[in-house]
């Protein structure tokens, strides 16, 4: 996966989380995932389609998710209020991924984002040769958060564009 795809997500996560938590955020780990994704806590998945396609999973351990929900709501959200905590994780995923998608679109990549959905299965799909998965671990004042990105360029669209470019030259 190319850095031009990854960087906007790092920047967006850093900006959104630092503003929400009013404290700095550090990337603790950055690894390529070969095995199926194992959910850490409460996770939301966003799918992309178009010139870039794939999925991103935003995952927070339960304690961190409850704290993030409280920050996002501006009022205490109990860890036992599962529905609010899940909603908050989905909304946070939407904000982080949406801001990164904005940057990528403004750089000339055209693709569509679907609304976030709760990722409930314990394991996600395995990465493949053309859909490498990158896992980013963020260390925040609320706890640990993870982002698992499996994205690829759409080959058919890329070749279509090459054909169009050939016709136009």
């Amino acid at each position: 996966m190319r850095m031009e795809l990854i960087q906007p997500f790092i920047n967006s996560a850093d900006a959104v989380l630092a503003e929400l938590l009013e404290s700095p955020v550090a990337i603790e780990k950055l690894t390529m995932e070969e095995e199926a994704y194992r959910r850490q806590g409460i996770a939301a998945e966003v799918c992309l389609s178009g010139e870039i396609e794939g999925r991103i999973i935003f995952d927070a351990d339960r304690a961190a998710a409850a704290q993030l929900a409280s920050r996002l709501a501006g009022a205490e959200v109990s860890a036992t209020d599962e529905e609010s905590v899940r909603e908050a994780v989905c909304e946070l995923a939407n904000q982080i991924i949406g801001n990164a998608v904005t940057t990528l679109n403004d750089q000339g990549f055209h693709f569509h984002v679907r609304p976030p959905a709760l990722h409930t299965s314990e394991q996600g799909s395995k990465s493949s040769e053309d859909t490498e998965a990158l896992v980013m671990g963020f260390n925040t004042s609320s706890g640990n958060l993870f982002m698992n990105m499996a994205l690829r360029y759409h080959r058919r669209r890329a070749s279509e564009r090459a054909v169009v470019a050939g016709h136009n030259s």
Partner: peptide, 24 residues
């Protein structure tokens, strides 16, 4: 919306929206 790229904003304004605010 959190998805605030230029093309989207222009499309929204052209179709009658008065303004755009980006999330968060």
């Amino acid at each position: 919306s959190s998805v605030g790229y230029q093309e989207n904003i222009v499309a929204a304004l052209q179709r009658g929206a008065r303004h755009f605010v980006q999330k968060p």
